[in-house]
Amino acid sequence: MNLSITLTVNGRERMLALPDPRVTLLDLLRDRLDLTGTKKGCDRGHCGACTILVDGRRTNSCLALAISHDGADILTIEGVAHGDTLDPVQAAFIAHDGFQCGYCTPGQIMSAIGLIREGQAGTDPERVREGMSGNLCRCGAYAGITEAVLEAQRALDAAEQEQAA
């Protein structure tokens, strides 16, 4: 028995048949849609490597059943850049060496984007660290990650003020 769902993934509507109601969003993205930027880390919701945005909210895709998200709008790391132009968060991660091995980086970037969009990043490094605490980095690139989030927040604030003027 196949179950049908419709998802908007990175701006593109996708109609999918699920052979099993236990398929997670992580496995659907990686195995069925070939969007392998979202990483499988712990597969238990502890590390944040699988973080995506579902209807604008940060979600550990390894814990989210695909069937429960019929009609959802999903943003993965593959949908963040605008053509050849990096998102300010991606650019800040590069500028501040917010990664080492890079395995956690897609989840870190998605969590940072969510944190900023939620209005929770602010300008305090401790607040950023707390907001990003669900994303683990085995290499310990936390200082660069924190600086990247703060820089991206500043860049987005400046762009918003420029548009308002």
Rank of each mutant, 00 (worst) to 15 (best):
Thr38Asn: 08
Met15Ile: 15
Gly140Asp: 10
Cys50Asp: 07
Gln161Ser: 09
Ser68Asp: 13
Thr38Tyr: 05
Ala64Pro: 03
Arg44Lys: 12
Pro21Asn: 11
Leu7Pro: 11
Gln120Pro: 00
Ile109Leu: 00
Arg30Pro: 11
Val54Trp: 03
Leu3Tyr: 14
His69Val: 09
Cys104Glu: 13
Asp20Pro: 13
Leu65Gly: 08
Arg44Gln: 13
Leu65Phe: 14
Ile52Met: 09
Thr38Asp: 05
Ala92Phe: 02
Cys47Asn: 12
Asp84Pro: 10
Ala66Arg: 06
Ala49Glu: 05
Thr59Gly: 04
Ala91Glu: 10
Ile77Ala: 06
Gly144Tyr: 04
Glu78Pro: 08
Leu26Thr: 07
Asp55Arg: 03
His82Glu: 12
Arg22Glu: 14
Ala152Arg: 00
His46Trp: 08
Gly41Leu: 03
Leu16Met: 15
Ala66Tyr: 11
Asp84Trp: 09
Asp43Ile: 10
Gln163Arg: 10
His69Pro: 07
Gln108Ser: 05
His46Gln: 15
Arg117Gln: 12
Gly122Ser: 03
Asp73Val: 12
Ile52Cys: 05
Met1Val: 14
Thr51Asn: 10
Val23Lys: 10
Asp157Arg: 00
Arg12Met: 14
Leu75Tyr: 05
Gln90Thr: 09
Gly114Asp: 01
Asp84Asn: 14
Leu18Glu: 13
Gln90Lys: 08
Arg12Tyr: 10
Ser61Lys: 07
Ile113Arg: 00
Cys101Trp: 09
Pro88Asp: 03
Thr6Gly: 13
Ser4Ala: 14
Ala121Leu: 02
Ala17Tyr: 15
Asn2Phe: 13
Glu118Tyr: 00
Glu118Phe: 01
Pro125Thr: 01
Leu75Thr: 14
Arg14Glu: 15
Cys42Glu: 05
Met15Tyr: 10
Thr8Gln: 11
Cys139Val: 07
Ala148His: 00
Thr24Glu: 02
Gln108Tyr: 03
Glu162Asp: 08
Gly45Arg: 06
Lys40Thr: 08
Arg22Tyr: 12
Val89Glu: 00
Val89Asp: 00
Gly71Ala: 12
Leu35Phe: 13
Ile52Ala: 06
Arg138Gln: 10
Gly83Trp: 11
Asp73Lys: 12
Cys50Lys: 03
Asn10Ile: 07
Ala164Leu: 00
Pro19Cys: 11
Gln161Leu: 05
Gly41His: 05
Cys42Ala: 04
Glu162Gly: 02
Gly11Lys: 13
Val89Leu: 04
Pro19Asp: 15
Leu33Pro: 01
Gly122Asn: 00
Cys42Asn: 08
Ala158Ser: 04
Ala49Trp: 01
Ala112Tyr: 03
Gln108Asp: 07
Gly48Tyr: 04
Cys137Val: 08
Val89Gln: 01
Ser61Glu: 03
Ala66Gly: 09
His46Ile: 13
Ile74Glu: 01
Asn60Glu: 04
Ile113Val: 15
Arg30Trp: 11
Ala165Tyr: 00
Ile5Ala: 13
Leu53Ser: 04
Arg57Val: 08
Gly122Glu: 01
Asp27Glu: 08
Glu151Cys: 02
Ala81Trp: 09
Leu7Gly: 12
Tyr103Pro: 04
Glu126Thr: 06
Gly37Thr: 13
Thr123Trp: 00
Lys40Val: 06
Cys42Leu: 11
Pro106Tyr: 01
Gly56Gln: 04
Leu18Phe: 14
Ala159His: 00
Phe99Gly: 02
Tyr142Met: 06
Thr85Val: 15
Leu33Met: 07
Gly79Val: 12
Ala155Arg: 01
Lys39Trp: 00
Asp124Arg: 00
Met15Leu: 14
Arg32Met: 14
